[in-house]
Design a protein around this nucleic acid. Structure first.
Length: 261
DNA sequence: CTGCAGGCCCTTA
DNA sequence: TAAGGGCCTGCA
C-alpha cells in the first residue's frame, strides 16, 4: 500500500464522468478500478490524499500513467477560466477532480459501441457481464470471436452484437490495426474508426479521446448538444480550446449531468 | 403499457 | 446532405 498526495484528482468524479465503466464504489471511501488486467483498490483519506493498494513499482508503471498524473490539470483549468465563460467556469469548479484516463484502446472501442443508445447503469451491467467469464477482466478479441453473434446477444449487447462480433474479427484479421490507429492524427484516427460499422461520429470521438488520448477530440452526445443549444444558442466554438477541447467536454458533460436536462 | 437512454445504419428525396 | 424509421434491452 502506498499513500499519495494528488491535486486535481477525485476518484468519484472520474468514475461518474462517463469516460470509464469499470470503477466501482465499494464502500464509503473505497473504490475498485479494473484496467490492464489489474485490479486496484483505492482509499480516499482526504480531498487530495489517497491510498493505493499496490506497490510503488506498479503505481509508477501502470497507474500513474492510467490516471494521467503527469498532466497539470490546474494549468488547463486556468486556461479555461481565461475565457471568462460563466458556464465553463461553473463546470470546471464543479468537476475539479476530473482527469482523462489513459485507457486500453480495445476496451474503449467495445465499451463505447455498447454505450450507444444506452444508459450508464446498463452499460456498466453489460460490460460486467462480458467480463465475468474472464475473472472480471475485459475479454480480448480472441475471446470474443469464440462466441457466435447470437451468444453475444445473451450478454445483453442487443443489436450491437453484430458490430462487436465484426470488429473483433477485423482486429484479428488485421483489417482493423490497433497499433496503426495509435499512430494516426486525430482526424485520421476518427476517419479510420468510422470505417467500422457501428462506429459513427460520436463513438469515434469517444474512442479517440478516451482510448487514444486525443484530447482535441470532442464527442457530442445528446447532453453536450443540449448545452450547445441552450447555453450557446447553437454555436459553441471548440476551436478556442484546440488540444484540450476534449477535457473541456468532460467538465461540461459532468456538470450538465448534475443540473439535469 | 409506452417511452426512452451518452447513436448508427440505411433508405429516400 | 438532410430527414426519418428501425433497432436490442431494461427500467421508469
Amino acid at each position: 500500500m502506498i499513500e499519495k498526495i494528488i491535486e486535481d484528482f477525485d476518484i468519484q468524479q472520474i468514475a461518474d464522468s462517463g469516460q470509464c465503466f469499470r470503477i466501482s464504489h465499494l464502500s464509503s471511501n473505497i473504490w475498485q478500478v479494473i484496467a490492464f488486467r489489474k485490479k486496484l483498490l483505492i482509499e480516499k483519506i482526504t480531498h487530495n490524499n489517497y491510498k493505493f493498494y499496490c506497490s510503488e513499482d506498479e503505481f509508477q508503471s501502470i497507474w500513474s500513467d492510467y490516471f494521467d498524473l503527469q498532466t497539470d490539470y490546474g494549468k488547463i483549468k486556468n486556461n479555461i477560466r481565461k475565457f471568462n465563460d460563466q458556464y465553463l467556469n461553473a463546470a470546471v469548479n464543479y468537476g475539479f477532480g476530473i482527469r482523462i484516463l489513459r485507457q486500453d484502446l480495445w476496451e474503449t472501442i467495445i465499451s463505447f459501441i455498447i454505450s450507444q443508445r444506452n444508459n450508464i447503469p446498463r452499460i456498466r451491467n453489460t460490460i460486467n457481464k462480458i467480463c465475468k467469464p474472464y475473472d472480471g477482466f475485459f475479454p480480448t478479441p480472441e475471446d470474443l470471436v469464440k462466441y457466435t453473434e447470437l451468444e453475444l446477444m445473451n450478454f445483453g449487447l442487443g443489436y450491437r452484437s453484430r458490430y462487436i462480433f465484426d470488429i473483433a474479427r477485423s482486429v484479428i484479421d488485421g483489417k482493423l490495426n490497433l497499433s496503426k490507429l495509435k499512430n494516426l492524427s486525430t482526424e485520421d484516427s476518427l476517419n479510420y474508426l468510422k470505417t467500422c460499422k457501428g462506429i459513427g461520429g460520436k463513438v469515434a470521438n469517444c474512442i479517440a479521446l478516451f482510448g487514444l488520448y486525443k484530447t482535441d477530440a470532442f464527442p457530442i452526445d445528446v447532453w453536450i448538444q443540449r448545452i450547445i443549444d441552450k447555453q450557446y444558442n447553437g454555436n459553441f466554438s471548440i476551436d478556442n480550446f484546440k488540444d484540450y477541447a476534449g477535457i473541456v467536454q468532460q467538465y461540461m458533460f459532468f456538470y450538465q449531468k448534475s443540473l439535469g436536462k
